[in-house]
Design a protein around this nucleic acid. Structure first.
Lengths: 221, 221
DNA sequence: GAAATAGTGTCTTTAAGACAATATCAG
DNA sequence: CTGATATTGTCTTAAAGACACTATTTC
């Protein structure tokens, strides 16, 4: 039952190998909705089309390093903790050849993206407000975005601002509005407070109550 | 800031490509503990060493197909729903060269493994009782087993026997003992019942109470 | 004082933990 | 009947949902 090609002494070089790409969904929250960073493709026949930043894995490079290199070179941002989502391998998803894509996700505060967004080769797309743009992405990137948003929601259901999208210190209102944007649904004010307060560290400070009673300011635990 | 090698017109063939392997942790429950299937390596310099069944991805083959082919050829089993866990890419994890391993996990009832276990090239290893064997696995397979068991526990915390390891129909006692083996800890009898009963379908039948009051028999919802 | 927002209290519902009580089998 | 196991009931505790109330600011 053994495959004869797997006989002892066979070299790895005897087999054809796939190209391996990394594609990253850089997520942020802007104007109350989850947005994903897109770059204009320049290096292939999709020239001019918007897509997730991606690159091919180089020799002796880890996947995480490839992701960081790609974000630096194509979007000018220093991503923080890219996480591997899954490998997409449907045949035909990439018409350039036999390409596996290892999808990643990262969360970056909007302020860290402002410099990159000055380039007209970089833009944000709302995942809730611009469905036609998202579903039209090449190379099956729409699937990656969907997985990434799903992962983001799971992360934000567990802890206060795990992606550090909010500048510190912040009020519980700021935090709740951020979590509502991620969840895409309103969250109960008091239930939210009871869940989050034990996971935050209070500063002694108060917000300047520009409209109404001032609020306590917090930082992530 | 663009990389010159990524200029339009460059071919995928211009870049060196990694070998891509799939390694699968086939899990089952035997004698009250979670076990993983190992095969004796024959095709490389680890000849004779126990390891997870794995193979290299072939051209125009999906990862899932490669996993199924490997399990069929090396262990003689028809795996059911292999799930992708994650890519392991630490340089140096494989001394045969530049190899990425896409780890998978599958759950198979012990009865479906009996035929395969007659071969002396196939064995089970308890993940709790034989740590020295597991941690000694080559190619970083110990990490894969750890991830796989973690995944199994998460799956069994959510639903009754999602891997269909138990023959139907079964009693709630059978189900609880299986879940205790997976969790590696005793589970409260009444809490377990209250959680699982709504997710099961009752047959009219009763077990033959060989010791004590007979129990109702259930099937998965 | 009115409007706005922050912070606290509490009632209800739901689920889990922990037992206790009852039911039904083999011997 | 006794021993063993299954099934049901209930008390307590913890957490969430849903409100209501009080407190502190700006205007």
């Amino acid at each position: 039952m053994k495959d004869s090609k797997n006989s002892p002494g066979a070299s790895l070089l005897d087999y054809p190998r796939p190209s391996v790409a990394v594609d990253t969904a850089v997520l942020t929250v802007a104007d109350g909705s989850v947005c994903v960073l897109l770059v204009r493709r320049e290096e292939d026949h999709q020239h001019g089309k918007w897509a997730l930043p991606g690159t091919f894995l180089r020799e002796r490079e880890t996947l995480a390093d490839a992701v960081l290199r790609c974000l630096r070179d194509k979007a000018g941002i220093s991503g923080r903790v890219p996480r591997q989502l899954q490998v997409f391998d449907e045949p035909g998803r990439d018409d350039r050849g036999w390409v596996l894509s290892v999808a990643h996700v990262d969360m970056v505060p909007l302020t860290d993206l402002e410099e990159a967004l000055k380039s007209n080769g970089v833009r944000l797309a709302s995942t809730t407000g611009e469905p036609e743009l998202i579903v039209g992405l090449p190379y099956g990137h729409a699937d990656i975005v969907a997985k990434a948003v799903e992962w983001l929601r799971a992360a934000y259901a567990e802890a206060p601002d795990p992606g550090a999208l909010l500048d510190e210190p912040f009020t519980l209102r700021d935090l709740r509005e951020l979590h509502e944007a991620v969840a895409g649904a309103p969250l109960m004010r008091d239930t939210f407070r009871r869940f989050m307060e034990p996971k935050l560290a209070g500063t002694g400070q108060m917000s300047d109550g520009t409209r109404g009673r001032p609020s306590r300011l917090w930082v992530r635990g």
